[in-house]
């Protein structure tokens, strides 16, 4: 509902906020679109696919944990550059990042996803879902690929994706927030800026679709946590000694 939104925000302020968030997104997006386009023909060859598929489960899990952690470091940097984020208390910064950083990684995945070939940029080349077979999480991988494909269909511009990512990161309904009201204000401002940009881009009819995707994002992230729990139950030492400390802080605590 828009009932709780501040009635108006000056157009110039909305533009300014959209510009800052868009700039922060571009500065921290890990790969530029042009770089990705140049690499788009580089898919894994069959023997490379075989080599990923033949890796022991724990080795593939570790590799994916490292890649996710790298992507999350860029999301943390994005968060730091969102107007007002660093003014929140540290507890809330941590709560928002713990709950939202993987969701933003998944949102950003549409930038590194090739819908035509159903491949995603991973470990230097474009990989299909079969590359991740050794993880033993086919259902989750399929769901992630389907999500990326559905995001790609929206053809979000960089500024729309930037604002949507910030909107997700600033979700005021996360558990354990201490200053919920302040987060709510930031999220509302971001939502207004997103609506403003969508209207400017003549795409206001897509807002609802995008907001609905929040449920899908949350479900993917909780499924990731479940899979990690199951993996950790079998390989507790691998997680403890070989997984990136940041990944453990975010998902394993």
């Amino acid at each position: 509902s828009n009932g709780d939104l501040p009635p108006t925000m000056p157009m110039a302020e909305l533009d300014h906020l959209a510009q800052i968030i868009s700039k922060s997104h571009l500065e921290t997006c890990q790969y530029l679109r042009e770089e990705l386009q140049q690499m788009s023909w580089q898919s894994f060859l069959q023997d490379e696919v075989d080599s990923y598929q033949n890796k022991p489960q724990e080795v593939m899990w570790q590799l994916c944990a490292v890649k996710i952690t790298e992507a999350i470091q860029y999301v943390v940097e994005f968060a730091k550059r969102i107007d007002g984020f660093m003014d929140l208390c540290q507890n809330d910064q941590i709560v928002l990042l713990k709950a939202g950083s993987l969701e933003v990684v998944l949102l950003r995945m549409c930038r590194v996803f090739d819908s035509q070939n159903n491949t995603v940029f991973f470990d230097g080349k474009f990989a299909g879902p079969e590359v991740f077979k050794a993880l033993g999480c086919d259902d989750l991988i399929m769901a992630v690929f389907d999500f990326a494909k559905s995001m790609c269909l929206l053809h979000l511009s960089e500024d729309e994706l930037a604002l949507f990512s910030a909107f997700i990161l600033l979700s005021a309904d996360r558990s354990w927030l201490q200053e919920k009201l302040q987060v709510e204000k930031l999220q509302q401002k971001t939502q207004l800026a997103l609506q403003h940009v969508l209207q400017k881009n003549q795409r206001e009819d897509g807002v609802l679709n995008k907001v609905l995707r929040v449920t899908a994002l949350r479900s993917l992230c909780s499924r990731h946590t479940e899979k990690l729990c199951a993996f950790r139950a079998v390989y507790p030492d691998i997680v403890r000694t070989h997984f990136p400390p940041l990944y453990k802080e975010l998902f394993s605590a």
Binding site: V76, K80, Q93
Partner: peptide
């Protein structure tokens, strides 16, 4: 704080993967 040491460090750091 101890539980989220790395996150705290990343939030405090002025250097980032973006600058490296």
């Amino acid at each position: 704080k101890e539980k989220h040491k790395i996150l705290h460090q990343l939030l405090q750091n002025s250097t980032s993967p973006v600058d490296l």
